[in-house]
Design a protein around this nucleic acid. Sequence first.
DNA 1: CCGCAATATGTTAGCGTTCACATCGCCTCG
DNA 2: CGAGGCGATGTGAACGCTAACATATTGCGG
Lengths: 338, 338
Amino acid sequence: MVRGESKNAPSMADVAARAGVSHQTVSRVVNGSDAVRGETRDRVLAAIDELGYRRNKSARALVTRRSGRLGLLYTQPHLYGPGTLAASVHQAGQKAGYDVILSPVPHLEATSAERAIEALLDDAVEAVLLGVSHQSFEDLVAQLAATVEVVMIHSDPPAGVRSVGIDQHAGAVLATQYLLDLGHRTIAHVAGPVGWIDARQRREGWLAALRDSDVAPGPEIFGDWSSRSGYEAGAEIARDPSVTAVFAANDSMALGVIRALHEAGRRVPQDVSVVGFDDVPDAAYLWPPLTTVRQDFASLGELAVEVATKAIADGTVETPALLAPELVVRASAARKPS
Amino acid sequence: MVRGESKNAPSMADVAARAGVSHQTVSRVVNGSDAVRGETRDRVLAAIDELGYRRNKSARALVTRRSGRLGLLYTQPHLYGPGTLAASVHQAGQKAGYDVILSPVPHLEATSAERAIEALLDDAVEAVLLGVSHQSFEDLVAQLAATVEVVMIHSDPPAGVRSVGIDQHAGAVLATQYLLDLGHRTIAHVAGPVGWIDARQRREGWLAALRDSDVAPGPEIFGDWSSRSGYEAGAEIARDPSVTAVFAANDSMALGVIRALHEAGRRVPQDVSVVGFDDVPDAAYLWPPLTTVRQDFASLGELAVEVATKAIADGTVETPALLAPELVVRASAARKPS
DNA sequence: CCGCAATATGTTAGCGTTCACATCGCCTCG
DNA sequence: CGAGGCGATGTGAACGCTAACATATTGCGG
């Protein structure tokens, strides 16, 4: 932009003067009121166009006492799930007439998250969507909910909290049951880090499926969602010849497990079966293609926005909504070798 | 939030009344003016605290005629690079005192991008960062720059445009030269889709390195960044026994290539070497670990914000800044089989 | 102890909207 | 033909803040 090139942005008054009407009439046109004569409307529209008029949201927000904004707090913005969720929330929010403020918190520390929430509150968001299924947030929610509408994106929300989520427990059961059905009886789990709700739920799903079939849990190793941690877990698992199947709590760790298994000379899936979680786009094209549990992050985002807008409108707290995940069978898991 | 629980948010006037000062004094305290007596300041601070006062940004923006906002437009929000970039821009912006509006455009069509820009302009951003290295944006820039400060995040910007980028051409040369050094003489390229600047630059870097060594280009196949397209390209490449190395324009496609090669019975790297681009976190834990070109998206975001804030301050257009990428050597590429 | 600078605080206006209400034509109908 | 009503438009105030200026209060030299 060349300095000094443009004067102050035109205001409604400027448009009004140009169109020979009052600012209020311009306001009516801009807001789609039907109490304006067609000819007048056309004149105003023309003036708007010629001047390049753009309504000042600050002034509008000031007088209406509504920001028209939704805030989404989310972690691990570089990952597929959160990234997809953010885009989906943003889009759904726009469609519902809201500006969405995306607030990624790269490193999960209490301070940075609290600062991010403060920033959202400073921006006067009408609702906060909490796309952070970490334990440390469960305490925050109560006090936050006193200030603003809150929607948790969470598969196991505290009672009385508005929430939407994907059923992590069910997904884990799906994965584990599939391995059971393939004849596996020693199924290891590479869990997500302690503190993460999704990690806990997936672990519990694994445990529950095993229990239902009267099968004892195989070894359990905690990772940190990264492929590196999956690799380390896989190396450990490879040393235990009794393990014939691994359920990893996400695709990255699954892929790390597979590499470690390969390095140890154990073939996947001939010797050891591996199932992941998430169905990242690359999962289908790994070697071997990864059997995994698909989560529909896009629908999740839309649902979250829907709940949020409803919350803003009437403040009701509906029962938590849970989306069902889906098992995607590919080549990384096979019948137990006899 | 329970309906009717809270009244209108407290204003400066409320704080002023409580602290026994004028609203202007409250303003001074909030804005860190030093022309306030310590004792007075404390009283005001106490009142702010008791009332839970929060400055109204809309009112402030209205009177100062500054929004304090930066907008980032970016595509493919679910991918590692864009996600990291977005988070980095957001964080750097906050640190520089700006609110950052993240605007992901999931599907790249002219209309949705233009709508996203309109939305950013409606939000009165003081600068737009264009994290979209697609051709279709190069035309948009000129007219956009007349309205607002623009920073392109782009490795090959049009002349006179403020920009920062990572040197894609250099990265591709790095990768190709490495394969050349390993003795490969028939090096295929799986290119990114036509229209994407990064794709073009990587392809040209591949071509340039080959030319410098007087080696004829190997087969060239255009993908769409997805691992699926890499897989299809790999299947085609596998049919050509003369190809001993593949440079893929990103890691996803590289991984698809590797799978196709495996399926065709060609070993990586013993029979065919593969190099990717990006260094996504999982690249190091694929099987085999992927040799690739690392881009520092975090620094890129910081740099972009720095340039943007400087642009807002003094409107100067500096010469485009280019960050150097780095070759990360892992196991997916090896000496040419003799 | 007066006067004047420097420091601390207050007052007023206005940013660009929307809201509530006032006004102005014009048409309808008794 | 005049009252009443309705549709179209205008007027004024207010939202919460900052900028500019005005005023009070302090300290200090002469």
